[in-house]
Amino acid sequence: MLRFIMFSCILFTGLKGYCQQASIHVLVALCDNKHQGIVKVPAKIGNGQDPANNLYWGCGYGVKTFLKKQTDWQFIKQIPHPHNNIYERIIFRHKRTHVYLIADAYDGAKMKETITDFMQYAAGRNKERINVDTATIRTGGYAGLIVFIGHNGLMDFALNQVPQKADNQRRDIAIFACASKPYFYEAIRQTGAHPLIWTTHLMSPEAYTLVPVINGWIQQEKSATIHEQVAQAYHQYQHCGIKAARKLFATGW
């Protein structure tokens, strides 16, 4: 057991910059028929102010529901309204490594604010400490992996400014939104974050693609391996053909 703890410390200190406080922060822009430029979905799952029934949060393949079914992850806590624009925060802990995952359900009408927060975290800004039971979780700009899930708001607006990298910590990002690579490319460059997974064309940003990313990141798998696992998962659920799925996702620049 001692050897395992020491190995975990080396693993996350050497490559991610911290030990026993490695974290993943997931920002979910709730699907919103009224406030987002999307192809309309059934009204019940397209209400961006109702996380419990939302396509990207409470539905079967939504982040909250899908993560709760993952045997490698332990659900720790749910926090209502932790910040402005966030309806709900959920916290998970990886059972083997004790890496924490924080997922926030953002008001679907606040897409610009959601993407702004994502960029701030990617640049290492807006760092936050969360006390959960006896643990202090470092997240926001502290996180080693930051994930955006939802409609690509940059198809509808431009950001006023993009933050520059705040420190020397390595951060990986994943963006599950339609054509995220061409739309987010320049902004992510400025933040200094590394694109682990993003997309080239239209896609459905559901949580079955999130799981291979977070598990692969924790296991420090190669980017190409994570890319393949994401493509396989998308093909499994969307039946789009593995060649098409591989082209849909990209890793790196």
Score class of each variant (00 low, 15 high):
L2S: 15
F4W: 14
F4V: 14
C9V: 09
L11D: 12
C19F: 08
L27G: 02
L30H: 03
C31K: 07
H35Q: 09
I38M: 07
I38Y: 04
I45G: 00
G46D: 06
Q49F: 09
D50G: 02
L55K: 07
W57T: 04
C59G: 03
Y61M: 12
F66K: 06
L67H: 02
D72K: 12
W73L: 12
I76D: 10
K77W: 07
K77M: 14
P80F: 02
P82A: 06
I86K: 06
R89G: 03
I90Q: 10
R93P: 02
K95V: 13
R96E: 13
H98D: 13
A103W: 02
G108D: 07
F118R: 03
V132H: 01
G140M: 06
Y142F: 15
I146Q: 00
V147L: 00
F148N: 01
I149K: 05
G150A: 01
N152K: 00
G153N: 03
A158W: 02
L159Y: 02
Q161T: 14
P163T: 05
P163C: 04
Q164L: 09
I173N: 01
F176C: 01
K181V: 11
P182I: 02
E186L: 08
Q190I: 09
T199W: 02
H201Q: 15
E206R: 09
L210P: 04
N215C: 01
T225D: 08
E228P: 00
A231P: 06
Q238H: 06
C240S: 14
K243Q: 14
T251F: 07
